[in-house]
Simulated scan of single mutants.
Amino acid sequence: MDLNARKERFLLAYIAAVAARAGFDLVEPRVDVDSIDGVLLSHAGRRPRIEFQAKATARDLVGDEVVTFPLPVKNYDELRADVIVPRLLILVVLPEREEDWLTHTEDALILRHCGYWHSLAGAPERENTTTVTIHLPREQRFDPAALQALMRRVGQGPIDET
C-alpha cells in the first residue's frame, strides 16, 4: 500500500475512533462520489447525520490560530454546495515521520497529531482552477465533544463556519 493510501486509512481510523467515543457510527461509501468519504450517523433523537470529506497532511501547516490547507477546487465546490445533509471537511494533521503516527503499548494506543473540522456551507465561488486555501480554526478540533455538539446543531439547522 502506498503512502497516500496508508494516510487515508489512518485518518479514517482516527475519525472512526472519535465517532465511536462520541457514540456515533461511521459509514464509508464504496466509492467517493461528490467528495463524500464518509457519513457520521446518530441513532438518537431525530437521527442526525453529517457527511464529510477527509484529508490528511503531514506538512507543517499548523499556525498559531489556524491550520492552512490547499483544498482541490473540486472538493471545495462540492463541500460548499447547498445540500440537505451538512458536509464538513475533516483534516487530520499527521507527524512528518510515519513511524510517529501511532504508538501502541499494552497500556495505550496513541494516534498523533490532531484533526480539525470546517464547514464550507455558503462559501463563495472561487475563480481558482486547482486549489483553494482553506483556513481551519485550531479551536475547531475534531474530537468527541466537538462531534457531539455538531450533531446537536444538525437537528437545529445548517452548520456554519463557527
Rank of each mutant, 00 (worst) to 15 (best):
L40M: 10
L40F: 09
L40R: 09
L40S: 03
L41F: 12
L41I: 15
S42E: 08
S42K: 11
G45W: 07
G45V: 08
G45S: 07
R46I: 13
R46P: 11
R47Y: 11
R47G: 09
P48M: 03
P48H: 11
R49G: 11
R49E: 15
I50G: 11
E51Q: 11
E51C: 07
F52E: 13
F52K: 07
Q53L: 06
Q53H: 10
A54T: 09
T57L: 14
R59V: 03
D60G: 03
L61F: 05
L61N: 09
L61T: 09
G63Y: 10
V67D: 04
T68A: 10
F69P: 02
F69Y: 04
F69M: 02
P70L: 03
P70D: 07
P70C: 06
L71K: 01
P72C: 01
P72M: 02
V73N: 00
K74S: 05
K74R: 07
N75T: 13
Y76H: 04
D77C: 02
E78C: 04
E78R: 05
D82R: 00
D82T: 00
I84F: 01
V85L: 02
R87K: 01
R87Q: 01
L89W: 01
L89H: 02
L89G: 03
I90R: 01
L94H: 03
P95C: 07
P95T: 13
R97T: 07
D100T: 08
W101Q: 12
L102E: 14
T103K: 06
T103E: 14
H104D: 08
T105H: 14
T105G: 12
E106P: 08
E106I: 10
D107S: 15
A108K: 13
I110W: 11
I110H: 08
L111Q: 15
R112G: 14
C114K: 15
C114P: 06
C114I: 12
G115I: 13
G115R: 08
G115F: 12
W117Q: 04
H118W: 12
S119A: 15
S119Q: 10
S119L: 10
A121N: 06
G122A: 03
G122T: 02
A123H: 01
P124L: 02
E125G: 00
E125H: 01
E125V: 02
R126M: 06
R126C: 04
R126F: 06
T130A: 06
T130Q: 12
V132S: 09
V132Q: 06
T133S: 15
T133C: 11
T133A: 15
T133H: 15
H135W: 09
H135L: 09
L136W: 09
L136M: 11
L136H: 05
P137W: 01
R138A: 03
R138Y: 09
E139T: 12
Q140E: 00
F142I: 02
F142D: 05
F142M: 11
D143E: 10
P144W: 08
A145D: 05
L147Q: 09
L147C: 05
L147A: 10
Q148W: 11
A149L: 04
